[in-house]
Nucleic acid binder design. Sequence first.
DNA 1: AAAATAACTTGCAAAAAGCAAGTTGTGTCT
DNA 2: AGACACAACTTGCTTTTTGCAAGTTATTTT
Lengths: 152, 152
Amino acid sequence: MVSPAKKRQTGCPIAFGLDTFGDRWSLLIIRDLMLKHKKTYREFLDADEAIATNILADRLKHLETEGIIKKSRDPENRRSFLYSLTEKGCDLAPIILEIIQWSGKYDLRTFARRDVLKRIEKDRDAVIAEIRSGQADKDNQTIGSHRTKSPR
Amino acid sequence: MVSPAKKRQTGCPIAFGLDTFGDRWSLLIIRDLMLKHKKTYREFLDADEAIATNILADRLKHLETEGIIKKSRDPENRRSFLYSLTEKGCDLAPIILEIIQWSGKYDLRTFARRDVLKRIEKDRDAVIAEIRSGQADKDNQTIGSHRTKSPR
DNA sequence: AAAATAACTTGCAAAAAGCAAGTTGTGTCT
DNA sequence: AGACACAACTTGCTTTTTGCAAGTTATTTT
C-alpha cells in the first residue's frame, strides 16, 4: 500500500493535522469537495493538478479511514460513487479559508479574486455554512429521491 | 537537490499554499519557530518528530527562498545561525492556529490542552501578536552590534 | 593544540510518487 | 442479446524523494 503519511504519534496537534490531511494531495481533494462541488472519482482525477489514479485511490481510502470523507453509491447510477465531506471534514473549512487568504495576499497569480477574498473576510460564517450545506446529509444520505442539484 | 514540492502552477490558492509550506516537514519547522521559540539548526533537528538532517537543510533553504523565514548570524556565537519568521511567515499563524483548534477537537491524545485552546479561541489576536513579537526585528536585524532599534 | 560543537554535505538503500496498461462491474446502443 | 463504453479502481514498473549514516568545514572551548 502506498501510505500518505505514517502517523508521527508525537502528540503535537500540528503533526496530527499533517498526518491526517497534510500530504501533497489530500488537501486538494478536500478543496474539490469543499469548493468545486466535485463528488466522483473521475472529477477528482480531472483536476488541474493531475493526480495519478493510484494515488487518488489511496488518498480517498485514507481520508475515508480518517473520517474526513464518506463514500456512498450514486442512487442514480449504480456504477458510480459519490464522495462527500463528513462533519469532521467540513470542520477543515476554516483552515482552507485561511490558506486561501494567505495565498490571496502573497500569490500574485492566484485565481482567488478580490471578491472571493472579500466575501471570506466579511462573511466567513456564511461561507462555512454554505460548505456544510453543500455536503450530503449528515446521517444516511441521498436515499432514493432525486439528487438535489447543488443550489447554484 | 532534494526538492520539497515542485510548483504546480495551477493558479489555485490552496495548491500555492501547499507548494510553499505544505510538505511533510515545513509546517513543523514553522511550528517550532512560531510556538516553541526554536531558532537554530540543532534545535530543529532535536524536535520530537526526528527530521533527517539533509531534509532539514533542504526545507530551511526552501522556506528561505520562499521568503517565509530568514537566516542571520548569531551575534553571540559565530558558528551558529539564527532562523526567524518573516512577516510573510508570521502571517501563517492563523493557519497554524486553525490546525491546532481542529486537532484539539478531533485528536484525543493531542497535547494541546484546554487552556491553550481556550486562549486561542478567546484571545486569538493577542496570540498572533505574541508570535509576531517573538520574531527578530522586521528590518535589518542583529548585525554585529547590539540589537539597535530599527528605524521605522 | 586537541577536542567539541554547529551547520551542513554526500552517498546509498528504502519508500513513495508517477505513469501506463489491465481488471471489474454497470449501463447503453443496435 | 452482444458489442461497446464508462466509472472506479488495481497492478507492474520506473523515477523521484526520503531517511539514515558518515564525512566536511568553520568556529569555540578546554
